[in-house]
Nucleic acid binder design. Sequence first.
DNA 1: ATGACGCCTTCCAGGCGA
Length: 256
Amino acid sequence: MRFATWNINGLRARIDFLLHWLRDRQPDVVGIQEIKLTDEQFPHDVLADAGYRAVVCGQKAWNGVAILSREPADLLQCGLPGGDEHGARLVTAAIGGITYTTIYCPNGKSVAHEDFPRKLRWLDDLRHHLSQSDRSVPMLIGGDFNICPAPIDSWNEPALAGHIFHTPEERDRFRALLDLGLIDVFRHCKPDAQEFSWWDYRAGAFHKRQGLRIDLLLATPALLARVRSVEIDRDYRKKKDGLTPSDHAPVIVDID
DNA sequence: ATGACGCCTTCCAGGCGA
């Protein structure tokens, strides 16, 4: 089965680009973030024509997450318990014997901003929520974590260390998630690779290779053992048929 | 040092993203 995570930066603006990618990559399950629409506005019809159903945790204008799948999915959770003040940023579904959670972590803006401690609390809430999940079922967490887990995950750690996405406080929270028994699949499979999943739209950042690896897939050990390959789909950060891409690339994992 | 691009919104300048 092919699973993916992708921050699409607005589903209404990205639907044709998403359909292009679905046809091309043929994923079985996709967690999408920043859909920026309500449940009522979700384009179920268009996606059904492409072969996908969806469980949706939407919100007007901002945030919003969903899981697309070819097979039926059971919605297990919509929204992070305790984290409602931050908007619709978590959805969990059971699909093909795997529990897939998609998250969109709050940005935090800057270390001095009031959103920064709120981001840390959201990550604490996420850890607590995940710690209560059924560990007898293989679990995958995919999403936009808005954290560079390690210096190699940033294009310019020397300049950005201590700034947002690069702080010890955020990295401690990320490590605490791994301490639940989760593994960063990309980093496990490619320990020395410097690859990014997000590039600023501005100033040609993509072509200058000025990016961050903040879109991640975390797996439980039993699921990791079934991983065949993992890729950041950098080609889909480029324009396709004149369509504007998201500022994030999809991350794809193939599981036996 | 600054701004840069793109999405959203009681429709358009301003907030937000990362």
